[in-house]
Write a protein that binds this DNA or RNA. Structure first.
Lengths: 389, 389
DNA sequence: GGTATATGTTTTCTCCGAGAACATTTTAAC
DNA sequence: GTTAAAATGTTCTCGGAGAAAACATATACC
């Protein structure tokens, strides 16, 4: 961020900062947040490492860690054998009995998981469905599954529940504006879940949740600028991390890369336009072309054109492909890479990593849980935890 | 920003925050920055307004304003007649003798301006050219013009110089990686300018600078998410403000919307691809079609398709059109608006404002100056000002 | 076993904003 | 015109936060 300050590339940021002054206790909150965030993403860290990473004083770190321990958020272990000179430093790690619930309603199933603050999926429940779930089905399932998971986990404390929904979600983090494959329109799922379970609830787009998970614990760990494309039964979902922040857009509908026009002579799309990426490369087409090398080549080229376009716009450090796009990439890796390079507008395209997403079936649960953990990470002392028992 | 905290949509932000702890004096710097930023963008404000806007205590505001005044950055005037009950509040305004220099090398001219901290262009020098300037020409012109401007302005104090270059600029804010229309490659203009003038120098892409200016004082004032398209002799430059921050990308090459593929059967572009927006809609074509209504309609439709694609990706609050794209929009306003609406994928497209950029010939100078002011706005007490005399 | 080194712990110090008390300046009421 | 009320500026005191120094502790190396 010093880099950012030097180049001064955060104009609106600055104007926003003007809206609120900083009180003295903001400092404490910020530092508690910094420490909890560090052990959340970085795993167990010694107090000495925290001291170096934050630039804070030893004594300050001691006080902050003590407060986090009192809040029941971290534990301190005796130091491991390092072989280094000097008094060994205590190891700080997040308590795994602090969990978030994660919910994923999809066309053919409902799934709920309990995810620990270190990203481990501790328990899960899944119900296969013949028809897409209604919002009421979804809330009922969440309630029942949460009870079962609570019984299984015993005394865990929960920070909230996050839901990953395949569709447009409003920037308020509660309203599903339009989820065509589920048949939902203007469903305030966040409020319904929160009321039913008695814990804070947030809703997000599934692609955003997926990228969040990959950024936290997967293939995009620690990278600053990422474009994410996920191919699923519900079409192609897109998301982007821009300068370390999720692309949201004015109303929360940013990142719909599945509906970027990629062939002006392409087929009519359900969205009313023609030649959208999602209509050109989709699950039925890929299934049909499973043993047709030429057809697969064509789809790979279309994917490459889309990636080149996105690189043009975002100049990402990494492009992440998930779902059937990840599978297509795996069987046409060199073709995609080469075509992107040929189509790329800019120098040093080699710097852009194209990779398949890493987290598999846990991705959405982890991403939704991350979203639920976010308020706790921002204000460790200010967010109450609810006992699951 | 509280909104952001609630929805928790800043994952990497959080991880970055973990890297640095907050010391106590950061608070002071933050608050000084908040005040100077407020009067920079908001014009003269009373101390009472600052108190309300920042949430800080009256006494604290008093101390902060006094420090800014001592630093020579703001002045306090007697209150204006308001007719309200109570002791009138002092008016705080930025001192207009604090300036930044702004430089714009283009294919046919060199231009330098001195811009006050309130966004006013105080003085300018321009040299028309037969052939594009070399980097050496540019630095020599900057030196000479800066001397003249200094003589004209007398005792002004300068914070630095910003240059807006039509081409790819590295994220370091100094290196012009490729400016094809100028014929520059890997020119470290920032260092050359800084050494010659003896003041801090930053270089940026002209489209980014243009958007920055429009965001600060023009048609995108105060808006959070903006897509910007500028048509000029050097092609189409693009830029985006995403969640209040300039889109930069991993290497600083983000926002090159002029090279997004918009027609898969389009003409070959100089960049090696086909059907780029810039090859489909450009100055020569528009000039040739000046009195050909059908052709203009076609270009307007192409522009609309590009805007629809960008709305899909960014969900902006506003789309800003400058240069010949602004002119095209002015003569085909309803056609563009309607086609965008028809092509748009999302609900409530009406919320997206499409508008022509406002600042005209001052845009790049103001934007480049804003860039030079940025470090001062972030740390008012830490940036030395150089006397121009 | 002694020493150097690194870290945890305790104490003291400084800085910052909040808040209370008081001063100042205007409008409104009588 | 005088007085009261309201809003803001000014001064002083207070509590909280991190820094820094002094001291305590635990390890490796000789």
């Amino acid at each position: 961020m010093d880099d950012e300050q030097a180049s001064g590339d955060a104009p609106a940021e600055a104007r926003i900062a003007a809206a609120r002054g900083s009180r003295n206790d903001h400092t404490r909150r910020h530092n508690l947040s910094a420490l909890l965030t560090a052990v959340h993403y970085g795993g167990p860290l010694t107090r000495a490492q925290l001291t170096r990473d934050t630039g804070l004083n030893r004594s300050t770190i001691g006080g902050l860690v003590a407060e986090l321990a009192e809040l029941g958020l971290v534990l301190e272990d005796a130091a491991a054998e390092t072989g280094a000179v000097g008094r060994p430093s205590l190891i700080v790690r997040p308590r795994t009995d602090v969990v978030a619930l994660a919910l994923h309603p999809d066309v053919d199933a409902l799934e709920l998981g309990a995810v620990a603050i270190d990203g481990t999926v501790l328990a899960r429940r899944r119900a296969s469905l013949e028809v897409p779930p209604t919002p009421a089905d979804t809330v009922a399932f969440a309630w029942e599954a949460a009870r079962e998971v609570a019984a299984e986990l015993g005394g865990a404390r929960v920070v909230g529940i996050g839901a990953a929904v395949p569709g447009l979600v409003d920037a308020d983090g509660a309203t599903v504006v339009d989820a065509p494959h589920l048949g939902w329109r203007d469903v305030v799922l966040g409020d319904a879940l929160g009321d039913a379970l008695g814990i804070p609830a947030t809703v997000g787009n599934d692609a955003n949740m997926g990228l969040r998970a990959e950024w936290s614990f997967g293939a995009a760990k620690g990278v600053d600028t990422v474009v994410y494309l996920n191919g699923s039964a519900s079409g192609i979902g897109g998301a982007a991390l821009v300068g370390g922040r999720m692309l949201r857009g004015g109303r929360g509908y940013g990142g719909e890369f599945g509906h970027m026009m990629i062939r002006s002579d392409g087929e009519r799309c359900s969205c009313g336009r023609s030649g959208c990426l999602e209509t050109e490369v989709n699950a039925p087409r890929l299934d049909a072309a499973a043993h047709d090398a030429t057809a697969l080549d064509g789809y790979a080229e279309t994917l490459a054109a889309a990636i080149a376009n996105l690189e043009c716009a975002f100049d990402p450090d990494a492009v992440l492909l998930a779902g059937y796009l990840g599978a297509l990439f795996d069987v046409r890796r060199s073709l995609v890479t080469e075509r992107v390079k040929a189509l790329a507008f800019r120098p040093d395209v080699e710097d852009v990593v194209i990779a398949r997403a890493a987290l598999g079936g846990n991705r959405l649960l982890i991403g939704a849980a991350e979203r639920a953990f976010a308020p706790l990470l921002q204000d460790p002392a200010g967010i109450p935890l609810v006992s699951l028992a």
